[in-house]
């Protein structure tokens, strides 16, 4: 499903020495996998997630998504792939605060050609057990609930793969476990999940762990 060939990412900050966030990375992720990418902060795992999630482009190397070379695609084409094939869950949830849970979940559907937006969003909320909170505003929900809304938003357009960047980072351990269980269930139902974390206990929920250190990938 995903293949990185010699992918590197360099950041150059005005005049300062460029930072090599990813070095000659090779990686394959197959459909239905539950992969954890683990590393300390500054290890390059966020750069990895941004490239895998098509939010950023590699400086060099090739990225194949469903056998399609991503580097040659335009910004709009990438946006369209993100919309249809990828779901994101962020550490800070990134919900629209004064907006209801349901409307937050609907957001990706605004940029798709799907019909019955409301119904699909309700179904997604049901999947994460939050249908009763549908009309609550995001800022009225607890952290765990907010992250579940974010997962529903990632699921709503039925993506092939979900990227979760430190999804439990802002949650207490009980809520964190709940969230991880949801990911497990989703994976059991066939979704490909890529989890980015520095926390080995969280990474333990995944079936496969990839270590990243100083931009270099090591598979266990």
């Amino acid at each position: 499903m995903i293949q990185l060939k010699n992918v590197s990412k360099k950041f150059s900050n005005n005049g300062q020495k460029p930072v090599q966030a990813l070095k000659e990375t090779n990686l394959v992720i197959n459909q239905g996998e539950f992969v954890a990418i683990v590393g300390p902060s500054g290890s390059g795992k966020s750069s990895m997630m941004n490239i895998l999630g098509m939010l950023d482009r590699p400086t060099s190397g090739e990225y194949y998504f469903e056998n399609r070379e991503i580097n040659t695609l335009s910004e709009d084409e990438l946006a369209s792939i993100r919309n249809k094939k990828i779901g994101f869950v962020f550490q800070k949830f990134h919900l629209l605060p004064k907006t209801t849970a349901l409307e937050n979940v609907e957001l990706p559907l605004l940029y798709s050609d799907r019909k019955n937006i409301r119904g699909l969003a309700l179904d997604a909320l049901k999947q994460v057990g939050l249908e009763e909170r549908a009309t609550h505003r995001a800022n009225e929900l607890s952290g765990g609930q907010q992250q579940r809304v974010a997962i529903a938003r990632a699921l709503v357009n039925e993506p092939e793969i979900i990227f979760a960047d430190e999804p439990t980072g802002n949650l207490d351990s009980a809520s964190g476990q709940e969230i991880m269980k949801i990911f497990q269930e989703l994976n059991e139902a066939g979704k490909t999940i890529v989890l980015i974390t520095h926390d080995l206990t969280i990474a333990a929920y995944a079936k496969r762990t990839i270590q990243i250190h100083d931009g270099i990938v090591n598979e266990n």
Binding site: D76, A79, R82, N83, F88, S112, N157
Partner: peptide, 16 residues
């Protein structure tokens, strides 16, 4: 800004 970033992440094109 973060709302704009989110919209783009979930599939909004620049013209959207």
């Amino acid at each position: 800004i973060s709302e704009i970033g989110l919209r783009k992440a979930v599939g909004a094109r620049s013209k959207d």
